[in-house]
Nucleic acid binder design. Structure first.
Lengths: 257, 257
DNA sequence: TGCTAAATCTCGAAC
DNA sequence: GTTCGAGGTTTAGCA
């Protein structure tokens, strides 16, 4: 269900209506720039007089109305809202209804200068604070993030099933494998750690510990972890970011001065 | 300092750079749709991988980066930020710096599918909750909003210098003039009320009270009000909206059901 | 300019 | 689904 790109300059009302409906059905992002009035009613109520704005309809149902100034949209509707469009008295009217709650946004266009309907693809990962690789750097820089007395070995450790995030020796000389996760760790993370521990055990007579370091652990994964004799250490990207910033371990984009 | 509308489809990097700079200088709103990576560093730090997004540069210095989903921008910069754009390794890079604080947003485009630079004019009034006319309706519906025992007269009252918002009799039978304002009332509002009171006094032997009803009153206007023997009553569009909603005095856009 | 309180806050996670 | 807490919260009103 991917739509095609359509750019319309100063389009007529009928033409725009068609583009709007096509965008909504096909999952395109739709931009409309033009003169409009906006009414909102729900948790509160507002009326916005005539003026030129940017309107964005996203394929997840969210709607944004942006004036030429200000960070925040003057009016909006959250994701999962339902869009209806029609022509009223020769003007294009777009209404967006929230699901479950009685809340309406109504945009009525008096003029339309630009319509752009585009099938945007965005699979980029968004990392706040620190990426998994940077969490690794933070742990190498400050091993106490895992536990007191932990001495990591800097080299990357390759085992059969992949690369171990961090490994080293604990305060009592036991081999220790650390699996890092940016988000709540699930069963898959526990099983992955378990594989690494098993493979290390098979190549060494030492005792081997497995530590799962993540912001939190899923409920089901907790019992699995315990059953496998592994451990959990709370560790968040925020903490790692602080360490990297304080210890200068970041590739900063902020200029000096 | 008004720019001209420019729409570019699949433009080259140099062409886009020129349009960006032109938009920033001329005060145009600029839309860029394309593939990009985004880095942010300041109060926190974030990295967003490659993907197609909508970027908005507003003439007040605010910057928005919107993914195809979600209400909120994935990255942004508030008004009064400063935009710099240049070409790095053949790619367009836009950086936005906050004033005063060390905070940077960096957008690097790998592809550009649409650029729109437009001088948007938006002088529309934004009324949250209730307009001045609706505040009037609320007071007529619920006179206690002004004071206990106030009995408004529904007819519009014309005097020399204009229309009185609300007038009527107080609990002791005194003629009472009410001047309504949606926002903090200034000297002009006090003087306007004063004129109405003076004109009513000149045509009647009754005592005449003047009440300025607004969310708040400016400091300078307060002393003027007292000097003229007028009164202030706190009254906000929010309160009026509640009354109108409870008493059914609204032209709702919410469908029944 | 700096602080405080409200917001159609949004958003994610836990219950 | 509902509630609760955090956020690069933002925003508006004042000192």
């Amino acid at each position: 269900m991917v739509g095609r790109t359509r750019i319309l300059l100063q389009p007529g009302v009928e033409e725009t209506l068609k583009a709007v409906r096509e965008a909504v059905v096909s999952g395109n992002v739709l931009l409309i720039v033009g003169g409009c009035r906006v009414e909102y009613e729900g948790r509160a109520r507002s009326i916005l007089g005539e003026g030129e704005r940017i309107v964005v309809l996203k394929p997840d149902g969210s709607v944004l109305v942006h004036r030429p100034t200000g960070h925040s949209p003057v009016n909006w509707q959250p994701p999962r809202s339902i869009t209806e469009s029609r022509i009223v008295d020769g003007e294009l009217r777009i209404e967006s209804f929230r699901r479950g709650v009685r809340e309406v946004l109504r945009i009525t266009f008096s003029s339309i200068s630009l319509v752009a309907s585009m099938p945007l693809v965005d699979r980029g990962e968004f990392c706040m604070h620190a990426s998994e690789e940077e969490m690794r750097e933070a742990v190498l820089l400050e091993p106490r993030l895992i536990e007191e007395g932990f001495r990591p070995i800097k080299d990357e450790k390759r085992v059969e099933s992949g690369f171990i995030d961090v490994y080293g020796l604990d305060s009592r000389g036991r081999l220790t494998v650390v699996e890092l996760k940016r988000k709540t760790a699930g069963r898959d993370a526990v099983l992955q750690l378990s594989r690494y521990v098993r493979q290390l055990k098979s190549t060494s007579r030492r005792e081997v510990r497995g530590i799962l370091a993540a912001p939190s652990i899923a409920k089901g994964a907790q019992s699995l972890l315990e059953a496998l004799g592994l451990e959990f250490k709370p560790l968040s990207p925020e903490e790692c970011y602080k360490v990297l910033r304080e210890r200068g371990g970041l590739r900063s984009i902020l200029g000096g001065g």
